[in-house]
Simulated scan of single mutants.
Amino acid sequence: MIVVMKVGTPEPEITRVSEELGSWGLTPEKIVGQTKVIIGLVGETASLNREQIQEVSPWIESVLRVEKPFKRASLEYRHGQASEVVIPTPNGDVAIGRDNPIAIVAGPCSVENEEMIVETAMRVKAAGAKFLRGGAYKPRTSPYAFQGHGESALGLLAAARDASGLGIITEVMDTADVEVISEYADVLQIGARNMQNFSLLKKVGNQPKPVLLKRGMSATIDEWLMAAEYILAAGNPNVILCERGIRTFDRAYARNVLDLSVLPVLKTLTHLPIMIDPSHGTGKSEYVPAMAKGAIAAGTDSLMIEVHPNPARALSDGPQSLTPDAFDALVKELAVFGKAVGRWEEAVPVLA
C-alpha cells in the first residue's frame, strides 16, 4: 500500500505517521516526490482497510493499494513518479532516468589487457560516453571459451577509470565476488544468465552500489521485474533495467530479438530507469546503429554499446563490437535523435 501525504505536510508529522504505521508491524518507506511525500508500506497489508490508515492523520491525502506482485518496482508504488539513479563518477555525478539526458555506456565485452582497456576508455569518453563497460568475469556457454582475467582485470578497469574519469560497470557472477567487485565498480551488473540467481540478487541488494539488471534470455517482463524486486526488497533502491535481447525460434540473422517494445510497456509498469543493449540484442555490429537509434526514439534512458579497438581480434563478442571510429560516428548520429526527443546533453566547449 502507499500513503500519499498532502502538499506541505510538516516533516515531524511524516515521521510520526511512519512510526505509528511501523508499530503495526509494517515497514514504512519514505519516497520524496516533486510536490508530495509518499509513504510506501511493505508487509501484511491485506487485512488492513484504507479507512483505518486514513484515520492516522488529517495530513493523509489518500491511501492506495499496489496491485502488482512487484511492489517496490511498480509505478504505483511511487504514485506514478519515475525514479532516477544517480551515480558518482570521477567526472561528476551522472543521473539515469526519464528526465535526464541519455547516458551512454561503452567498452569491450571483456578486459584483455591494460593498453587495450585504457585506449578504449579514452576513445569512448572523447565520443561522449559516461561509463566504461568491461567484463573481468565472463559467463560463457562453452567451458573452453575465454572466461575473463578475473580479479586482476578489476585493477585494469581502475587504471582505465583513473585515465579517463569514466564510471565503471562490470559484471558480478558469484556472491563471493560481490565485495571485491564493489571496491572497483561504480555499477554492478547482473547478467542475463544470473537474472534469477536469487542469492546473488539479495547480495547485491545488501550493498549500496547501483545495480544494472539485465533481462534473462527467456524471461517474461513480470519475471524480470520480480528479479528487480529482490534487489529493492533487500534495501538497494538503485536499480537500472537493461534489455539485451530475448531468445526466439529464429537465430539465422541476429543473435537475439531486441525487444524495443519493453520501453513503452515498462513505462506503464515501473518507475525504474531503462537501458537498451543493441550489441547483445543483435549480435552483429552492422545492426547496432539502427537499433540504438530506434531505442532513443522509443524512449530509452541509456544505451550500452560494445566497442573494441580491433574487433577481429577480440577474445569475446568481436562480431558485435564497433571500432572506436565507428562508435564516434554513431554517437554523432545518435545526437540528432537525442536532441529531437529532448534527451541529449550538449557538449561543453573546451576553452583554449
Results as ranks from 00 to 15, higher is better:
Thr175Met: 11
Gly216Arg: 02
Asp325Trp: 09
Thr248Phe: 13
Gly150Arg: 09
Val180Glu: 15
Leu132Ser: 05
Val336Thr: 12
Thr45Met: 06
Ala340Gln: 04
Glu76Cys: 05
Val66Phe: 04
Arg98Lys: 13
Asn256Ser: 14
Pro289Phe: 06
Thr141Glu: 11
Asn238Leu: 06
Gly294Arg: 00
Pro237Gln: 00
Glu29Cys: 06
Glu179His: 06
Ala326Asp: 14
Gly150Val: 13
Asp177Gly: 06
Thr282Arg: 03
Val4Gln: 05
Asn310Met: 13
Asp99His: 09
Ala254Arg: 10
Thr9Gln: 03
Val17Ala: 01
Phe146Thr: 09
Ile240Glu: 01
Asp328Thr: 15
Asn256Trp: 12
Val42Trp: 09
Arg133Gly: 14
Glu183Asn: 10
Leu48Met: 06
Val180Tyr: 10
Ala227His: 07
Asp277Gly: 03
Phe198Ser: 09
Glu171Leu: 07
Glu306Ile: 05
Lys36Pro: 12
Pro143Phe: 06
Pro28Arg: 00
Gly8Glu: 02
Trp24Glu: 12
Ile221Leu: 10
Arg251Leu: 15
Arg65Lys: 11
Arg255Tyr: 11
Ala228Asn: 00
Val66Ser: 03
Glu112Asn: 06
Ala252Phe: 13
Arg133Lys: 12
Leu272Ile: 02
Gly22Pro: 00
Val257Met: 15
Val350Ala: 07
Gly135Thr: 08
Asn206Tyr: 07
His149Phe: 12
His79Ala: 14
